[in-house]
Amino acid sequence: MQQTLFNLHEVILLITVTESLLLALGIIVIPKKRPQSHCLLAGLLTLIASILLATLLVWSSAVQQTSALYSSLLIAILSFGLLAQGPLLYFYMQSLTKHVNFYSAAVALHFSPAVMSVVIILVFDLTLFDWLPHNWPHIANYKHNLILFIWAGFKCLPLAYTVLCCTAEYRLRKQLQDRYSNIPFWELRWAEIILGGFSLHWLWAFVAYWLSGYVGPEVNQQMGKISDYVTAALINVLFGFTLWSGRKALILPDISDHKRDSSIVENSEEKLAAIRHAIDVDSLHLEPHINLERFSEHCGVKPREASTLINKHYEKNFFEIINYYRVQEVKKRLSENRTSTVLDIALASGFNSQSAFQRFFKRFEGITPTQYRRQANSPSKRPAQRVSGNFP
């Protein structure tokens, strides 16, 4: 019987490697507002491709029968990739809200475990032969301990980056809410899916590492394959994240502190009055795509100052205060207009997402828009007025 060139697991790895590299190339050539974020995401995809390819070669019986068995190159690449993927994902998440300075000592510290693993492998001449568990009884004790030390690093350290990445995602969410009045609910979910996928992957690797001493070789091999399959699934999620959220909401321009020379007002009372005028008179909340930068420019106030004043005076962020006034507009129109649909009124009042409209209306009023209209049109059942927070 003719032996197959690759088994199913190896084919999946090869397909994922190819897909990762194609995605990385596509991300680089896509027009971009924030080049650093795109470059970091492309770098992460390239790193994943190198990890999967090195994994395929390290555990390939065909490779183990060649001179590569006594080379350190493959395991150096694999170790660096496994220890660098956590920091790279973390800095990618950070780059969505601010520029990352890669010349800082803090960044170097994050990548130091990956660099240290390569140095250990090269200095102590740890080869692929030394790396394979079934050869451990035949290698020097110090080599065995060094390999266990490196293994522990790339099985346990990524869990710390799960926490760091979740923190970066939380900051991203808060900044988006402070700057944009309309953020479709699913767009914020993409980052959570990415973090959830990597967290699941790293948690599985951590559990498999600690169970490896209690299960047989075949079970260990299956657990390793499952980890590879999770990585393959993540590649497709990353593609969706980049194609939708990355292009629409999550890759944002920096908030600039540009001044309008003649129109910048000086004291807080005047700035607050300008903010009130923008809502009460100019009705900027009715613009579906209004954001903090455009709102602030209209008021003649710096974006950071406008955000601070809104948070301090209304005890709500820009995202919430704009949608509060939209809800008030919807209530007014629901009471006056009995022919238009609720959705048409919501769209005319500045909302461009039905889910966001429903969520905010019920949050501020305690009932659905349909229930409110029914009560507003019934003389005996006028809806009670609800006020949430320090709204005027």
Score class of each variant (00 low, 15 high):
6 F>V: 11
9 H>A: 00
17 V>Y: 02
22 L>F: 11
25 L>D: 05
25 L>K: 13
33 K>Q: 10
35 P>W: 05
39 C>R: 15
60 S>D: 15
72 S>V: 02
76 A>M: 10
89 L>G: 04
90 Y>Q: 07
97 T>K: 07
99 H>R: 13
101 N>G: 01
101 N>W: 03
104 S>T: 12
106 A>T: 13
106 A>E: 13
116 M>K: 04
122 L>A: 07
137 P>V: 12
141 N>Y: 11
151 W>C: 07
157 L>I: 15
162 T>W: 04
163 V>T: 10
164 L>S: 10
181 S>R: 04
182 N>E: 14
197 G>A: 11
198 F>P: 02
203 L>R: 03
211 L>W: 10
221 Q>T: 06
226 I>M: 08
230 V>E: 05
240 G>S: 11
246 G>W: 02
248 K>A: 07
253 P>E: 08
255 I>S: 08
274 A>Y: 00
278 A>M: 05
282 D>C: 06
286 L>E: 11
287 E>V: 13
291 N>L: 07
293 E>H: 11
295 F>Y: 08
302 K>V: 09
302 K>D: 14
306 A>M: 14
306 A>P: 00
323 N>M: 07
325 Y>E: 05
326 R>K: 12
332 K>C: 06
336 E>R: 11
346 A>W: 00
356 A>D: 08
357 F>T: 01
357 F>Y: 09
361 F>Q: 00
366 G>E: 03
368 T>M: 02
369 P>K: 00
377 N>V: 02
381 K>D: 13
390 N>L: 09
391 F>N: 12
